[in-house]
Design a binder for these strands. Structure first.
Lengths: 155, 155
DNA sequence: TTGCAAATGGTTATCATTGTCAATTTATTT
DNA sequence: AAATAAATTGACAATGATAACCATTTGCAA
C-alpha cells in the first residue's frame, strides 16, 4: 500500500473522528498546503486547488480552511495586509515549528525556527502560570516579529 | 501651567516632528485612547470621539489611527474577530507593557503583564540573533495566547 | 492676517469573507 | 449495486471593515 493511499485513509479517519466526510476538494486543499512553503491566502489556495480540480469553488476553499483550522490541521495568520494566510499546522506532513518575521515595508515574510527549544520551555512555564491565574485553558500561542528587511531598510 | 495644557503642547511638538499638524480631532482620539482600558475598535473609538466632538467622522478616526501607529504612539491588534483593535503604545500616558490572552470561544480579552522582565531579556537576545541572521531590523514583536476562558471551557 | 499645504467629512468604492439555497456527493444501509 | 439520509458543494448575493475621492475647512508659519 503506497503512501498516497495510506495518507488518504488516515485523512479519512481524521475527518470521520470529527464527524465530517472526506471529499476530493478537501483532499486537494490539504495537498496544496502540504506541497508549498509559501504563505498562501485563501485565494492563492483556491487558484492552486482549482488548477487541479476545476470544480472546486472559492467558497468551498474558505469552508474547508475553517474546518481544518477547527480540526487543528491548519493555522491562520494575519500579517497585516488585509488577507489571512494559511499554513499546515505544526506536526502535519512534516510541518515544523516556526515563527515569522514580517517586513512592515514590503510585506515579505521570513520563517525562522531558531530558539524553538528554548521557546518551548519558556512558554510552557508562562502558559502554566497564566492558565492558573486567569482561569484560561491556553491551547496555543502566537509570536511574530515586525521590522524592515534589508531592501526596505534603505529608506 | 496645568497638565492638560502642557500635554497639549507636547503632543503638538510630537506631531510637528513628524511633519504633521495637531488638530482637535487627533487630540480627542488620543484622549479617548488614554482614558480607556478596553480594546476598542475604530468604530468604538469613533463613537467615543464623536460624543465629545460631533464633527469628527469615522474616516478621520481611521486616518488618525494610522498616523498614530506610524508615529509609534498606537498599537494595532487583531484578535480574530474581523475588526482591528487599537491601544496606546507602551510608554505613552502610562500605558505599560502587556500582552493578551484571547478566548477563542467568546472573544474575551485578558491583559497580562507578568513575565515582562524575563520576556524582555529573552526577546532581546532572539531579536539580536534573528536580525543578524536574516538581515532584518526588528522593531517590535507580538505575543498572544489563545485558549478558552472559564465560561467557555464548560463545553 | 494671509496663503497654502495639510486635514477633514460625507459619500462611494473595494475587497475579503460569509450567508443562502437548490443541486450534488458521500458514506451507510438494504 | 441501489436506496437513503445527511453532509457538502457551487454560484451568487450580502455583509462589513477599511480605503479612496474630492470639494471644503483648518492649522500654522511668515
Amino acid at each position: 500500500m503506497n503512501n498516497k493511499i495510506r495518507n488518504k485513509m488516515e485523512l479519512n479517519k481524521q475527518f470521520r473522528q470529527f464527524g465530517h466526510k472526506m471529499t476530493s476538494g478537501r483532499e486537494t486543499t490539504i495537498d496544496v498546503l502540504s506541497e508549498t512553503d509559501e504563505h498562501l491566502s485563501a485565494e492563492d489556495i483556491h487558484i492552486k486547488v482549482h488548477s487541479v480540480n476545476p470544480k472546486i469553488g472559492l467558497t468551498t476553499v474558505y469552508r474547508t480552511l475553517e474546518l481544518l483550522i477547527n480540526m487543528g490541521m491548519v493555522s491562520k495568520f494575519d500579517f497585516g495586509d488585509g488577507r489571512a494566510r494559511y499554513e499546515l499546522a505544526e506536526g502535519f506532513k512534516g510541518a515544523k515549528h516556526h515563527h515569522h518575521l514580517v517586513c512592515t515595508g514590503c510585506g515579505r515574510i521570513v520563517d525562522y525556527s531558531e530558539f524553538v527549544k528554548e521557546e518551548k520551555t519558556f512558554f510552557k512555564r508562562i502558559e502554566l502560570e497564566l492558565s492558573r491565574k486567569y482561569d484560561f485553558r491556553i491551547t496555543n500561542h502566537l509570536v511574530q516579529f515586525y521590522g524592515l528587511c534589508k531592501k526596505c531598510e534603505g529608506y
